[in-house]
Design a binder for these strands. Structure first.
Length: 565
RNA sequence: CGGAAUGUAGCGCAGUGGUAGCGCGCAUGGUUCGGGACCAUGAAGUCGUGAGUUCAAAUCUCACCAUUCCGACCA
């Protein structure tokens, strides 16, 4: 490719409002151009990277028996009514009508399409297991896209779906996919990635993993045990922690005045937060009347993902203005009201001598004894793990890190095959709903994640396996006829063996050299009057900055060695 | 969806009521040129959209739209 004709512009200016490295550099190096909020065009360099990532994904998916398909982007409502997701998914799904007034939608995930594709074609147990996958555009009407390609509305995704006759069979295949994912991320040159246990969310099913790039700009919190290497998304992470012992006492109302928050009440009563019981109130989406009151120990925070699973529906923080609840003085003792659901966290189980709100202004209650005052209630785990609490597996302290989710694998169980009525005949003649697994990788997000991880102060820095071009051919002083002729000759010969971007522009040396670094091309070959005088070229390795002077006759051999993946 | 901000040339920005500006980029000519060269000349704008106030609006008022950041959401 001649850079003079490349549809891509490099610039010194940082895009307005951008503060994430990969976002800034992908724009500055001419890889992407924003069309609208969360919607980007991939310019030629980015599309080349994307296609190399896709090629690696295809190879690994095919390697574990995957069959590539292509589902539609636009689907009719009826397909999604069957699974129940047309109504259960919110504004994130873009809906519209076709010319006849029929309800349609843009695909944001393809479980329904996968079941539709297989049902009635696959009829017998001996056709299972199998896995189908596609690499295609997804559209999710995200409330807040951000950070360039990290979180967008429209993106390319690999999504795969496997079908099995038993849970054991799925688990076996799930582990194969797990290993394939590790190979994919390693092959695209990602270094600091891990897998973590995750929440199934509205996908349903019983177990799931996410693959994460560890980075401070990540949107997810990950709980990691440095000792035994156990890892989980904060949404599902659990820990061991001390259960304090306080002196048992009878219930007693005490004046606390304006003290409302845990901190204020603790200061007022001269106690520690772990001696209090904190109330956090939520509304249930789709049920205006109901209020969920979650009680957790004062030193802990509610984990809304866990609470959502206990409640069995979407929850949002409740505005208490239109309820009977006394904000800042809510307590579980004697708390009554229509449409209240009270959930206790396990951190409270068996404690006594606790302080909680008295359900009236300016008063709290001391001496709360969980066993005595709440006989027979059920306790759920609904709190976030705090840094330093102990690993449930090995008992050592846990740490918390940030990560970007770059892929996930789910056990879907029979959620979709059952709701959509897909059955296969078993050897004994009975019909079962196959068990499904589902496996996603965001291609654009992986691209941005590798960019984020590998870039340095000079610009992007692609691993050889996914670099848009392997070699940056950089003639300096190509106004000189000898240099220009040699460059043209090299461009022709090298292009037959390598992916070459040829800087044929008549601009100063500095511009070419900095552009080659900004674009992150792994190997740069410089020729100039000076090097040609010795029949040499200068090779520079982008990742290390290492410079190698090489005889022109040896150039091809050297490049073959350097471009090896 | 809550909070905050921004919208002026391709990009980054200045411009508080009176002739539309700067830097980069682009075009032409010349001099330079192994780390984002210099000089000269030039092209490029419905100042986000619509209404209002005013003799006069990029500038003041209102509405709308778009974009960005923080948070919520994120299958």
């Amino acid at each position: 490719m001649r850079i003079s004709h490349l549809v891509s512009e490099r610039t010194k200016d940082v895009p307005q409002g951008a503060n994430v490295k990969s976002h800034i550099l992908l724009v500055r190096a001419g890889y992407i151009k924003q069309v609208s909020n969360g919607i980007y065009t991939l310019l030629p360099p980015a599309q080349r990277v994307s296609q190399k990532i896709q090629k690696i994904i295809r190879e690994e998916m095919d390697n574990i028996g995957g069959q590539e398909v292509l589902f539609p982007v636009v689907m009719p409502r009826e397909m999604w009514d069957k699974s129940g997701r047309y109504s259960s998914i919110g504004a994130e799904m873009l809906r519209f009508k076709d010319r006849t007034g029929r309800d349609m939608l843009l695909g944001m995930t393809h479980e329904e399409a996968a079941v539709h594709a297989c049902q009635n074609i696959i009829k017998s147990y001996d056709q299972l297991p199998f896995m189908i996958y596609q690499i295609q555009t997804k559209y999710r009407d995200e409330a807040r896209p951000r950070a360039g390609l990290i979180r967008v509305k429209e993106f390319t995704m690999k999504d795969g779906y496997s079908f099995h006759t038993s849970a054991e069979d799925l688990e076996k295949y799930y582990n194969e996919v797990y290993e394939a994912y590790n190979r994919i991320y390693t092959r695209i040159g990602m270094k600091n990635f891990i897998s973590v246990k995750s929440d199934n969310g509205a996908m349903g099913g019983s177990y799931a993993h996410e693959f994460m790039l560890l980075t401070d700009i990540g949107e997810d919190s990950i709980v990691i045990c440095p000792s035994c290497n156990a890892r989980a998304n904060m949404e599902v992470a659990v820990s061991k922690y001390d259960m304090p012992k306080f002196e048992d006492a009878p219930l007693k109302e005490v004046y606390t005045g304006k003290a409302k928050s845990i901190e204020e009440v603790c200061n007022f009563l001269k106690i520690q937060p772990n001696q209090t019981m904190k109330a956090v109130c939520y509304a249930v989406v789709g049920d205006n009347k109901k209020t969920v009151v979650a009680f957790v120990r004062g030193d802990k925070e509610v984990n809304e993902a866990k609470l959502k699973n206990v409640v069995g529906g979407e929850i949002v923080v409740k505005d208490l203005a239109d309820t009977e609840l006394v904000k800042g003085n809510i307590g579980a003792v004697g708390l009554k009201g229509d449409n209240l659901q009270i959930v206790f966290d396990k951190s409270l189980e068996g404690l006594c001598g606790l302080v909680t709100g008295a359900n009236k202004e300016e008063y709290h209650l001391t001496g709360v004894n969980m066993t005595r005052d709440f006989a027979g209630v059920e306790y759920f785990d609904i709190v976030k793990v705090n840094e330093g609490e102990l690993c449930p597996h090995c008992g050592k302290p846990l740490t918390i890190k940030r990560g970007i989710e770059i892929g996930n694998i789910f056990n879907l169980d029979t959620k979709y095959t059952k709701s959509m009525g897909m059955t296969v005949a078993m050897p004994d003649g009975s019909l079962i709903n196959p068990i499904m697994g589902c496996y996603g990788i965001g291609v654009g997000r992986s691209l941005a994640s590798v960019a984020e991880e590998s870039a340095d102060e000079k610009g992007l820095n692609w691993p050889m396996a996914i670099a848009p071009w392997q070699v940056y051919l950089c003639p300096l002083r190509n106004d000189d006829e000898i240099v220009a002729n040699k460059a043209e000759e090299l461009y022709k010969t090298l292009s037959s063996k390598f992916e070459v971007i040829y800087d044929d522009r008549k601009v100063s040396a500095g511009v070419k050299l900095t552009d080659s670094e900004l674009m992150g091309i792994p190997v740069r070959v410089v020729i100039s009057p000076r090097s040609l005088a010795n029949n040499e070229a200068e090779i520079t390795i982008r990742a290390t900055g290492e410079k190698i002077m090489i005889a022109l006759s040896e150039l091809e051999n050297k490049l073959t060695e350097l471009c090896k993946i």
